[in-house]
Amino acid sequence: MSLSLTRLWAILRKEFIQMRRDRVTFAMMLGVPIMQLLLFGYAINSDPRHMPTALIAPVQDQFSRSLVAALENSGYYRITHPDAQPSEAERLIAQGKVSFVVTVPADFGQRLLRGERAQVLVEADGSDPTATSGAIAALGGIAESAFRRDLAVPEAAGPEIVVHRRYNPEGITHYNIVPGLLGVILQMTMVMMTAMALTREIERGTMENLLAMPATAAEIMLGKIAPFLGVGAVQVLVILGAAWALFDVPFMGSPALLLAGVMVFVLALVLLGYLISTVARTQMQAMQIAIFVFLPSILLSGFMFPFRGMPGWAQMLGELLPVTHLLRLVRGIMLKGAGLPDVLAQFGALSVMVMVLGALALLRFRRTLD
Results as ranks from 00 to 15, higher is better:
Leu30Tyr: 01
Leu369Lys: 11
Ala69Cys: 02
Ser46Pro: 05
Met207Lys: 08
Met190His: 03
Thr189Leu: 14
Phe16Pro: 10
Thr194Asn: 06
Gln346Trp: 03
Gly358Phe: 03
Gly358His: 02
Ile44Tyr: 07
Val279His: 05
Glu208Tyr: 09
Leu369Ser: 08
Leu181Trp: 02
Ala218Gln: 06
Phe292Trp: 12
Arg148Glu: 12
Phe147His: 10
Ile44Asn: 04
Asp22Tyr: 04
Thr53Gly: 02
Asp47Leu: 00
Arg148Ile: 15
Leu327Ile: 14
Ile298Thr: 10
Pro306Cys: 02
Asn73Gln: 15
Val266Asn: 12
Leu267Gly: 13
Thr25His: 10
Met190Gly: 10
Thr130Lys: 01
Met196Leu: 12
Tyr274Ile: 01
Pro48Cys: 01
Leu320Cys: 11
Glu88Gly: 06
Val184Asp: 02
Ser301Glu: 07
Pro159Glu: 01
Arg308Gln: 10
Ile172Val: 15
Leu38Ser: 05
Ile185Val: 15
Arg78Lys: 14
Phe40Gly: 00
Ile79Tyr: 02
Phe307His: 05
Ala280Leu: 02
Leu139Ala: 03
Gly230Ser: 09
Asp83His: 13
Glu170Ile: 02
His164Asn: 15
Gln95Cys: 13
Leu186His: 10
Phe16Asn: 12
Gln62Met: 05
Gln119Cys: 04
Ala146Arg: 00
Leu151Ile: 14
Thr80Ala: 11
Ala290Glu: 05
Arg117Gln: 11
Leu269Arg: 05
Gly318Tyr: 01
Ser74Lys: 00
Phe365Ala: 00
Met355Ser: 12
Ala314Val: 09
Ile161Thr: 07
Pro86Cys: 10
Ala197Ser: 14
Phe26Leu: 14
Val153Leu: 15
Ala124Val: 00
Gln187Pro: 03
Val104Cys: 09
Gly183Arg: 10
Ser46Glu: 01
Val262Ala: 11
Phe63Ala: 00
Pro105Tyr: 01
Leu329Lys: 00
Met51Asn: 05
Gly309Glu: 01
Ile11Phe: 13
Thr103Arg: 14
Thr6Asn: 11
Thr189Trp: 04
Ser254Ala: 12
Gly158Pro: 02
His325Asp: 02
Arg49Trp: 00
Leu362Ser: 07
Phe63Gly: 01
Arg166Trp: 06
Gly96Asp: 07
Leu269Lys: 06
Thr282Tyr: 11
Thr132Asp: 01
Met304Trp: 05
Arg364Tyr: 09
Met252Lys: 15
Arg21Thr: 11
